[in-house]
Each structure stands twice: as C-alpha cells, then as structure tokens.
C-alpha cells in the first residue's frame, strides 16, 4: 500500500513539475503568505511586548508548531479540497468506486501539493528562531514529544479537511465555513489559548481539537502553566486526541460514501 501511495504521489509531483516556474512561484507565494502573516503578528506582539503574558519568542513556538503541522496536512490532503469537489460536480466519483482501492485512499492520492511546504518551511524557521531565543531545557522525552506533536497536529488538520470534503456528499460544494476551523484554527492557536473566552477555548480543545496541536506542548517546553488548569502533561495526550478525531472524520467519510452509494449523488 505504501509503495502504491508513493507511486501515485510521484505521478502527481511529476505532473506539477511540468510547470516549474508556476511551482516555484506558488511555493514562494505560500511561504510569503504565512511569512508576512507572521511579520504582522511579530510587529503586534513587539509593539505591546507580550500577549497574555507570552513573549514574542514564546508565541513563536506556538506559531511554528501549528504552521508546520498545517502545511504538512495541506500538502498531503488537498485532494479532499478542489479535486474532490470537482469530482462531485462532474459525477466522476463513480469512477473512484469502480477501482479496487478504498475511496479515502484514492481521494487522498488524487492530489499532493508539494508547494504547501512553503508554509511548513516558514513555520520551521520561526520555531528554530524562537528556540534559539528561549532557554528550553531539551530532555530526551521532550525531543520525542516534538515529532509526536507535529504528527498529531497534522492529523487534526487533515481530519478537518476531510470533514469539510465529506459535507460535499450532501451539498456538492465544500462549505466555506470549514475555513474557520482550518485557517481560522491555525490563526487562533498561534496565540496562547488562555487569551480567549471559555466558549472558544472549549470548542477548540474538546470539539475541534486544534488547540491540542501546539498549546499543551508549548506549555511543557516553556514550563508555563495554563491559568485555566490545563496540565502541560496533556501534550502527551495529543496523539490520542488526534487519533480519535481522525477516526471520527474517517467514520463521517464512510457515512458520506454510503449516502452516495444509496442515492448516487
């Protein structure tokens, strides 16, 4: 399965590389987009010295972790975005069902946007820069936590993209509102979760767990405590939360497909 995945993805990348100039322009475009957003954030936090008691470097940790995860999720799962929407509109999802592979796998491999690495790269630079300015005590456990956190974050964002796509089975168009949770979520968790009111905090931790993408891990790394009592050790629960959320998205996808196979549209 993995080798087939790599083959299909390889084919996507080869076709994108037919237009090298476009590829590089878009890569730079994505990096610049998230880059200037960070500059705006940095100017704001710099002007006021801190946000909710977090310094710019500390916010950089939050921002970096979320950006890396979001960029990776976009890279691997944008097949659920425009390509899938187009399939629903043209009725070509039928063709997916006549192939001996799972529909989820086929949609995921229908697109692979290497250019989204622009966002991840920029996020990684901010994260590394922030770490250099902070006295983070790196233990083995914390080093192990980092890839786990990034992977969990990626999985949470992927699940959101899948949920948005699944709604297509009923509406034909991916509702714009899903942007609130993907792009909005990424922007929201770029600041410490403690600055928001209870409703927003709870929604983004327990309903749409984007808050788990970076906040507990940052608490742990920076040895900070959450004013509302979220323990820093919750960072270790992120993989579990992400798995549960992704499973829910996968289940929703199956409901969507069975809706399609019973009504054909």
């Amino acid at each position: 399965m993995l080798s087939l995945y790599l083959r299909l993805i390889g084919a996507r990348i080869r076709s994108q590389m037919q237009y090298k100039l476009s590829f590089w322009l878009e890569l730079v475009g994505f990096a610049l987009s998230s880059g200037l957003e960070f500059v705006a954030l940095a100017i704001l936090v710099g002007t006021f010295h801190s946000v909710g008691g977090w310094s710019l470097a500390e916010v950089g940790v939050l921002y970096g972790l979320s950006s890396i995860s979001f960029g990776l999720a976009e890279m691997v799962s944008r097949g659920f975005d425009a390509p899938f929407e187009l399939m629903m509109q043209r009725g070509s999802f039928d063709g997916v069902l006549t192939r001996p592979l799972g529909s989820f796998f086929q949609i995921m491999t229908s697109e692979f946007q290497l250019r989204r690495l622009g966002r991840s790269t920029q996020g990684a630079l901010v994260f590394l820069y922030a770490c250099r300015h902070l006295a983070i005590h790196w233990t083995l456990a914390r080093l192990i936590l980092m890839p786990l956190t990034l992977l969990s974050g990626m999985v949470v964002y992927m699940a959101l993209i899948v949920i948005g796509a699944t709604i297509c089975f009923w509406t034909i168009k991916t509702p714009e509102v899903i942007n609130i949770f993907t792009f909005g979520g990424d922007t929201l968790v770029s600041y410490p979760l403690s600055i928001y009111n209870g409703l927003i905090r709870n929604i983004f931790l327990w309903v749409v767990p984007v808050g788990f993408v970076n906040y507990p891990a940052a608490l742990l790394l920076l040895q900070r405590s959450d004013p509302y009592g979220l323990p820093a050790t919750a960072a270790w629960a992120a993989p579990l939360v992400a798995t549960v959320f992704f499973a829910a998205a996968g289940l929703f996808w199956r409901v969507g497909v069975s809706k399609y196979t019973s009504t054909g549209s």
Binding site: S3, L4, D94, G95, R99, P100
Partner: peptide
C-alpha cells in the same frame, strides 16, 4: 471491481495530466 472493467463514455478514468502510458503503468500497480 478487481474482476470487472468499466468504461463510461462521457468521463475518462485516466489521469488527465499524465502521459497515457503512465496511466497504464499506475493501473498495473493498482
């Protein structure tokens, strides 16, 4: 579906942006 072949006249099952032979190669693996 592993044991049947399907062609819809109106819609292609091929990867539209790849050379035809590459679609065939991918199908070999699928």
């Amino acid at each position: 579906v592993r044991r049947i072949g399907v062609v819809f006249g109106q819609r292609s099952q091929l990867w539209w942006d790849l050379p035809t032979i590459e679609s065939f190669a991918l199908l070999r693996h699928i």
